[in-house]
C-alpha cells in the first residue's frame, strides 16, 4: 500500500442500517446480554425509548474500517474510543479516519463514527451526530506484529 500522508483522510466506510438482529448477534458473539440492548420493553422501563447498540458494536465496525484502511489489523498497537451518542436500530454508521501523525514506520489516525438516521421518534435527534471518537496507532509495513505466529 502507498504510505498515507499527514492530514489525509481515508475513504468513508458506512455500515448498516443497523438491524435489531445485528444487536442480538453481537450480544451472542460478545457475551454482553445486558437486556437494555436486546429487550425493548425492558429498555423502555429504564427510560430509554428503544433498545440501542452496545458501544462495542460500533467500536467493532470502526476497528473493521480502520484495519481495511491500514491493510489489515496486524499492525495495530493501540485503539481507543470514547462513546458520545447511542446508536439506534435503523441507523447507518459512517466511519472516517484522518492521519494525524506518520513517520518512523508508525501511523496515528483520528477516527470518528457518525450515526445517521431518524432515531427513535420521541428523541428528535439530528439526522447525523458523532457516536464515537477515538485514535488508532499502528505500525506500517509489517502487517503482522512481532510474534504474530502466536501459539
Amino acid at each position: 500500500m502507498t504510505l498515507p500522508e499527514l492530514g489525509s483522510s481515508f475513504p468513508e466506510r458506512t455500515f448498516g442500517p443497523l438491524g435489531r438482529v445485528d444487536i442480538v448477534r453481537y450480544a451472542g458473539a460478545s457475551g454482553d446480554f445486558n437486556p437494555i440492548h436486546i429487550d425493548a420493553p425492558y429498555a423502555r422501563a429504564t427510560g430509554a425509548p428503544d433498545v440501542f447498540a452496545m458501544g462495542m458494536l460500533p467500536a467493532g465496525y470502526l476497528a473493521h474500517a480502520a484495519s481495511d484502511w491500514l491493510g489489515g489489523p496486524g499492525g495495530f498497537r493501540r485503539f481507543k474510543v470514547r462513546f458520545a451518542a447511542r446508536v439506534w436500530p435503523g441507523d447507518l454508521l459512517a466511519c472516517t479516519g484522518l492521519v494525524t501523525k506518520v513517520g518512523g514506520g508508525h501511523i496515528s489516525v483520528a477516527v470518528t463514527a457518525f450515526r445517521r438516521g431518524e432515531g427513535p421518534e420521541d428523541l428528535s435527534l439530528p439526522d447525523q451526530e458523532i457516536a464515537l471518537t477515538g485514535e488508532i496507532e499502528a505500525e506500517l509495513g509489517s502487517s503482522v506484529g512481532e510474534g504474530g505466529n502466536g501459539a
Binding site: 493501540r78 481507543k80 462513546f83 512481532e146 510474534g147
Partner: peptide, 11 residues
C-alpha cells in the same frame, strides 16, 4: 460505558 482502549503487542 465511557471509553474503551486496547493496547496490542500482537493479535
Amino acid at each position: 460505558h465511557a471509553e474503551q482502549e486496547f493496547q496490542y503487542k500482537r493479535l
